[in-house]
Design a binder for these strands. Sequence first.
DNA 1: GTCTATAATCAGATAGAC
DNA 2: GTCTATCTGATTATAGAC
Lengths: 205, 205
Amino acid sequence: MNARQPAKVSFKEQMLQAREDAIVLTVNRLLAEKGFDAMTVDEVAASVGIAKASLYKHFPSKEDLAAAAMVRVMRRAQDFLRSLPAEQKPAERLRAVARWTMALQLAGEMPSLPSQNSTLRTTLLANREYTDGLMEVSDTLGGWIEQAQAEGVINPKLPALAVLYTLYARACDPVLEFLKLGAQHTDEQIIDLVISTCFEGLNAR
Amino acid sequence: MNARQPAKVSFKEQMLQAREDAIVLTVNRLLAEKGFDAMTVDEVAASVGIAKASLYKHFPSKEDLAAAAMVRVMRRAQDFLRSLPAEQKPAERLRAVARWTMALQLAGEMPSLPSQNSTLRTTLLANREYTDGLMEVSDTLGGWIEQAQAEGVINPKLPALAVLYTLYARACDPVLEFLKLGAQHTDEQIIDLVISTCFEGLNAR
DNA sequence: GTCTATAATCAGATAGAC
DNA sequence: GTCTATCTGATTATAGAC
C-alpha cells in the first residue's frame, strides 16, 4: 500500500492503514528508546492497544516490525533530501542532513538496531523498499560529497565512502545522548557542538 | 584478587586465577563480537570449556561476567595512559589514546554494551573497580584536554566534557567496522582515516 | 569446584473461537 | 481481524551428586 497511489480506498482499508501507521509509529519510538533486542512484541501490542496475535496479522515477525519502522525513517529521509532548496551548495546540504538526523535522534525518533543481529540484517536486506531507499539516499549523498570535495569544501583526500559512513554514524552518535543527560545544554546547542566537531574536528583552526 | 599484590599464592589459587582469566578473556571477545544481549552464558561456558554451573561459582550472574570484562579493559586503558612518555604533549597523548582504542576495536577486543540495559548499568555502577577506573581515566583525559585547549591545539571553544565524550564515542565508532567490511583499506589506514576525521574534521583545511 | 540434570522465566509465535 | 489461551524454544540460574 503506497501513499502515492491515487485512492480508491474503502473506509475499512483506511482504518486498517491507520492502525498499521499507529503500530509503526509505536515501534519506531520503542526502537529509539530501547533498541531492537530490548523491545518486546508484548510491549508493542500493549502500547498500541491491541492483542499480540492481532499484531502478527499485520506483520509476520518482530524483524518485520523493525523493518517497517526503518522503511518509514528511510522515506522521511528521502523526503527531507528532496525538500532541500535547489540553490543550496552540496556542503551545506550535507550539514543540513547531519543536523536533521541528529535532531531526529534527540527527539527520540531515530530507531536503533544492533548491527550484529543476523536475522534482522537478513530481513532488512530482503526488504526492497528499504534497500532501494538506502541506495537512493546513499547515491544522493555520495554525489553531494563528491561535489563538495571538488569545490574544496569537504577534504578531497578522504574517500567519499568514508565521509558517507561518517555521516551515517553521526546519526546515532552516543555523544548526543551523553550531552543530553548532562543537562548543561539545549538540544540546539548539542547539535551545534556535534556538527562542529564532525565537520571542523576537535582541533583548533 | 589484585595482580599488584605481592604473592603468597598457592598452586591451587594460581590455577583458579588462570581459569578466571580465561573466562574473562572469552567474555571480552564475545562481548566485542556480539554484544551483551546476544552473548549467552552457555556460549561462554562452552567456549571456555567448562560447565555452566562452574561458571556461576566464579561469577554470580551474566552481568557480573560483563562487568569483569569491562574492569579488565579499564585496567588496560589505565596501563596505557601511564605508559605514555612524559615528554609527549597533551594533544599528542589524546591522539595516541584514540588510536589505541580504535586498534582495540579493530582487533575485536573492545567489549560493547547496550547503553540502555538497566540491570547491566546497575551492576556496573556498583562495581568500585570499574567506576574508580572510569573516573581516573576521565580525570586524566580531562586534564590533558584542558591543557591541549590552553595550548590552542584542541579547540578551546568546545566544552572539555564534549571533547571527552567524543573520544569515548570514537572508541566504539561503527565507521571502523563499515570500512573494515569494505576491505578497501588496511587496519592502519582505517585508523588514520578516522583519527583524521575526528581531529581535523570532514572539511578541508 | 566441577559436573549432569533440571527448574524457572520470559519472549516470539500460533490455535481456534468469534 | 481481533481476541484469549497456549505452545515452543531459548536462556538465566540452581540443586545436588561427586
